[in-house]
Design a protein around this nucleic acid. Structure first.
Lengths: 227, 227
DNA sequence: TATCCTCTGTACGAAATCGTACAGACATGG
DNA sequence: CCATGTCTGTACGATTTCGTACAGAGGATA
C-alpha cells in the first residue's frame, strides 16, 4: 500500500505536485530512525535517499586523521543525501541521525529518475541543495568567528527550528563532537547560557526557555533559516 | 564574433559538447577581471554568471554584524554563481576577484536557459555545485579543527591548484580577512612556513617551493581537490 | 538495595590566538 | 630624489580554548 502524500511530514515531499509525488510514491517506505543510524557515508555508495519527518540528521565533514565537525543539519525541511541528485554516487560527508524520529526512505535510483523526469522536481530539490550550501557556508563562518557559547546557541536554535519543540535531547559529549570543542567546554557554555536564563537543562537534554534572548546572544552566528 | 570553444580556458565550458557549448556561445563575452571586482553579492540580484580562465575568485560568507570569512574559492575549474542554476535569483554569499585574471561572462538568464535545455549541461554544472558544497564543508572543518598555520597552508595549496603557477600574489591583510585571523597572525604563520622551507616570500606575494612538504604540514586540512 | 556505567561539574596549567600599537621596509608618483 | 602611503615585522598583556584529570550525581540493572 502506498503512502498518501497527505500523511507525509517531510516538507519537500509534501510540497510536490500530486503528479510529481507519484514519481516517488511507489518506492517510498516509512522507517523509524534512531540515534546514530548512518544514512550515508564516504565508505560506501549511496543506496537510499532519506526524508525525515521529525528528528535531526547531522552532516559531518571528516578528515582521514580523525578530525570531524558538523557541517550542517537536516530535518523535515530537507533530504539526504543531495550528492545523489547532483549526480555523484558517493559523498565525502557522513550523515547520521542525531535526534531520533521517523522518516521515509527511497532507493537512490528512484530519486535520480524522478529528478531527471520532472523540471519541477528539479526546481524543488535544487533549491534545497542551495539552502544547504548556504547553511554550510554559515557554519564555516561561525566556526571561524564566534565563541563556543555563541556557536552552541546557534546549534540549539537551528535544532529547535527543525523540530516542533524546544526540548533538545543530547549529551554534552555529542555536542562537543559536533562543535569540535572539548566536552568540558560544552558544559561550561551550557551553564553560561543557563545562568543567563536562556535554557533549562537536565541530564541528557536542554530546553530553550527564552528564545528571543538566545537569538540575541548568538548575534549573527544564527540567522533565521531561509526555509 | 563568437568565442571559439577551443580558445576557452574555463574547464567547465571547455568540457561541454559542441552542441551544449552552442547554447552559451552567442552570449559569452570575454572580460578582464581585476582584484576586488564584485561578481555577485547579497545586495543585488544576480545579473551575470562568470567563468574564470585564470585567477581566483573568493566566496565569502558574511553576517550583518560585519564578520566575514571565506567559505570557498573558485578558479578556472568552476563557475560563479551556482545560485543561478539552483534556481535562486539571489545569493547570501559575496564573491569577488581575489587574484586578477581573465574570464567569460554570460547573462544569468542565458545560463538558466542552457541549464534547463540540456540534461548534459545540468550534469556538468550539478557536479561542480556538489564539489563546491564539499569544499565549503571542508572549510568548516578546517576552521574548527586546524591551526592558523595549517589553514594558511591549505589556502595556499588550494590556490596553487587553481592557478598554473606556485606564485601567489596577496598581502597578509587579505589573507587575514579570508582566514578570519589577525593580520599579525598571518605574518607569523607565513614566517613559520617560510623558515620550514616551504615558501619564499616577497612583499605582496608568496611562492611555494616545497609543495610536498607543505601538503604534509597541512595534514588533512588540505586534501587534493575532487576536480 | 547494591552495583555499575554514563553523564556532568570542576579544577589546573599550557597553548593558541587576540587586540593593539608602533617602527622600519618597500614601492610609487611627483 | 623626496614624500607619501602601503605592507611587514615585532612586541605586550589579555583572553579564549585546550588537554587532562577526578569526583560526584543520575539512572539503569541485578
Amino acid at each position: 500500500m502506498q503512502i498518501e502524500q497527505s500523511s507525509v511530514g517531510n516538507l519537500l515531499l509534501a510540497s510536490l505536485s500530486p503528479g510529481d509525488y507519484a514519481l516517488f510514491a511507489p518506492d517510498l517506505v516509512r522507517v523509524d530512525l534512531i540515534r546514530r543510524t548512518l544514512l550515508s557515508s564516504p565508505e560506501q555508495p549511496i543506496v537510499y535517499c532519506w526524508f525525515l519527518e521529525n528528528g535531526i540528521a547531522s552532516m559531518v565533514a571528516t578528515s582521514r586523521d580523525g578530525q570531524e565537525t558538523e557541517a550542517g543539519i537536516v530535518g523535515r525541511e530537507g533530504m539526504i543525501d543531495v550528492a545523489t541528485i547532483m549526480g555523484s554516487p558517493r559523498t565525502p560527508l557522513r550523515t547520521f541521525i542525531q535526534i531520533s524520529g521517523k522518516g521515509l526512505r527511497i532507493p537512490a535510483r528512484t530519486m535520480i529518475a524522478a529528478y531527471s523526469a520532472s523540471e519541477t522536481v528539479r526546481k524543488t530539490f535544487n533549491q534545497f541543495t542551495f539552502e544547504l550550501l548556504c547553511q554550510i557556508a554559515q557554519t564555516a563562518l561561525a566556526n571561524a568567528s564566534y565563541s563556543v557559547e555563541q556557536r552552541l546557541a546557534r546549534w540549539l536554535l537551528m535544532c529547535a527550528d527543525r523540530l516542533d519543540r524546544n526540548e533538545i535531547s543530547l549529551t554534552h559529549e555529542s555536542l562537543s563532537v559536533m562543535l569540535n570543542v572539548r566536552r568540558a567546554g560544552v558544559t561550561q557554555a551550557i551553564q553560561s547560557l543557563q545562568s543567563a536564563g536562556y535554557l533549562e537543562t537536565r541530564r541528557g537534554s536542554a530546553r530553550i526557555v527564552n528564545r528571543r534572548g538566545l537569538e540575541e546572544f548568538a548575534q549573527d552566528a544564527y540567522s533565521a533559516p531561509l526555509l
